[in-house]
Design a protein around this nucleic acid. Sequence first.
DNA 1: CGTATTATTGATCGCGCTCAAGACCTGTGG
DNA 2: CCACAGGTCTTGAGCGCGATCAATAATACG
Lengths: 246, 246
Amino acid sequence: MVSVMATDLQLYREKCSACPIRHRAVCATCEPDELARLEAIKSYKVHRAGATIALEGDALPFAASVVSGCATLSRSLEDGRRQMVGLLMPSDFIGRPGHSTAAYEITAATDVTLCQFRRMEFEDLLASTPHLASRLLQMSLDELDAAREWMLLLGRKTAREKVASLLLIIVRRASPGPGPKSIELPLTREAMADYLGLTNETVSRQLTALRKDGIIGLTGKRGLTCDDLAALFDAAGEDGDGAILT
Amino acid sequence: MVSVMATDLQLYREKCSACPIRHRAVCATCEPDELARLEAIKSYKVHRAGATIALEGDALPFAASVVSGCATLSRSLEDGRRQMVGLLMPSDFIGRPGHSTAAYEITAATDVTLCQFRRMEFEDLLASTPHLASRLLQMSLDELDAAREWMLLLGRKTAREKVASLLLIIVRRASPGPGPKSIELPLTREAMADYLGLTNETVSRQLTALRKDGIIGLTGKRGLTCDDLAALFDAAGEDGDGAILT
DNA sequence: CGTATTATTGATCGCGCTCAAGACCTGTGG
DNA sequence: CCACAGGTCTTGAGCGCGATCAATAATACG
């Protein structure tokens, strides 16, 4: 279930403590009084699947946490070649403290609910709330690690390994814990291709190859199942030794 | 001139104010009293070209700033495929606050001088010094932008564009400002290939192609000249409109 | 239904990889 | 001073993976 009910939003609006990402987002380590100050400057906004949230260089008057759904960050060359540079899932942060513009195009891959904070007030709060600043530093360093992991994929992995790696990331974030998985892919074939530095045709071919090898199941356009995560790890060119449970 | 004299090190050791990266490194925004506390936990260390500073997963008992020279961060797959994920030049920061181990292999590309801080003390200082924490956040966000820029290169640029882009980055960091450039490349062909997701043969071919096109000059193994940065921008698939001066 | 969008599958092409040989550069010892 | 060794770099020949171009199939939607 990707979307959030309007009635739920009413609930979160009043109390951050009821928020599904309360303990994972940028506010995770905030004390009750700090949370209250965040509540004062937040507002929820739903973006429909396919909508552009911001273009490269646009003024971005807010920072935000992804509450539900999936958004993407991407950069393009003048001739239209496009590379996705970030995949934003619930609890991920949007915005660059200290900058007033978006560095990347931000797009809603599915319907997305954001918890938006007015930019100036958020930065003031950041400066006066060490809990918030240190949490944001941790999250930024995690993003940096993820980006560098992706550089290894883009520079050195084969098409098959790339596709398997992306499926692993999506499956693990959408459905943590052990056991067989059955999820809805939040991305089109083309969005996957943009993330992997491939074409949509190649993504499609590798998906059917993985299916024919019995590693995954495909139902309809977006359905994905995987009974044996270890096999998917193997196809991704990683050994999931320490991560068997995830 | 990449290296730093031993007599210079004596000078910096006593006074951060004499340090060449004083106003660009993690300590850039520190007040005199904060600087004094950093001075108390710092020590300089020189690593020879080719030396391994840390392996992936090694305990890393320090954080550090690069004072002079060039170091690289890289990740590898089990079968040996290697991808460089960071290029560290003077003023860049090494270390992951909150983690005690290195996430990447750290290698000295040239002789490198580090200003090392003992990890635990540095983290204590980080927690009690907002100036230091906010500077580190800014630097981490800049690193994240650079990593994402590199993702675009790895996923979507041609070999020629990749090589030109790398030369641009090196030239601009080694010799800021306008005018003809003449520098020493800090990287071997193989290191460049690891950064660009190519082979050393392809890097070599593209370098000679750029030379034959009159865009760069190559002297000896490491010498590089470029009279027309705009032409190099063009070959890199970017328009250096706003960056003509750099 | 008809139309538009997205996904699959096929045929062919070309960029960058692989394998291999030779050139160049640096240091070492006779 | 030269001979030799070991590393780095360059250049060539051929191949294969993923891109490109194109046609068809599946799905969503008014």
